[in-house]
Design a protein around this nucleic acid. Sequence first.
DNA 1: AATGGGACCTGCGCGC
DNA 2: TGCGCGCAGGTCCCAT
Length: 266
Amino acid sequence: MPELPEVETIKRELEKAVLGKKITGVTVHNPKVIREPSPDKFKKRLSGVTIRNILRKAKLLILELSNGKSLAIHLKMTGQLVYPGSGQAARVSFHLSDGKNLDFNDQRLFAELRLIDDWHKLKFIKALGPEPFDITDEQFKEMLSAKKTKIKPLLMDQTFVSGIGNLYVAEALFRAKIHPERAANSLSDKEKSLLFEEIKDTLKEAIEYKGSSVDQYVQLTGQPGGYVKFHKVYDREGKSCLVCKTPIKRMALGGRGTYFCPKCQK
DNA sequence: AATGGGACCTGCGCGC
DNA sequence: TGCGCGCAGGTCCCAT
């Protein structure tokens, strides 16, 4: 599931691979993933435009185009961008001026493509909380103090803090030795600071290793990311904790699988 | 207001 | 063996 590190990886690779290139045409294999405008207008308006700038806002990719519009891409769980693409599994293929394709794949059709006039006006963008890298330790502590919600679902709430999903929240909480069900405002100052550092370190390390290929995520080249071998709790139910050997537990929290060490995380 | 659950989807793995 | 069910999760939406 692409979270901040995976989307950042793709963003950096897109900058190297397609920035400055022209989209000569678009083939839509499954119109469902195009949320706006209609597939016809989508194709027409994208043909002949140049990719001028590539941005990432939390888990959202934004391609700013020479016609003033932007292409916003949310990969959700199984979305992929592959270049050069074969077109085989593509839901949408973007044909580029270099003769190659940028393929958008998405097994489960959850992902969203939007061609819009101004990405700042997207409801999703306006609702986003700050990314962990954009706030200070003091701010983070204040934010947590104001919430009595369980810490795990709170950190996954994109309007509270953005970019963290189910995988990295599990890893960061483990590293900070904090139980996923703790009330946010029950954390000590020391715990809050440690958690803040571990969130940022986990995300940075994951970016360094080009993301975690669980489920469908691949880099732009189609290669898997290398961070899975560093996971300490995610998808490790029943396996022994790498610190204390206690079996890792899985519970449902907010309807989502939650992995933790019942001994290390208090 | 905060929280929980369902919907959206498809493929895979498990149990009977 | 083969089938059907549950599960995977980012986000939105609705109900409580």
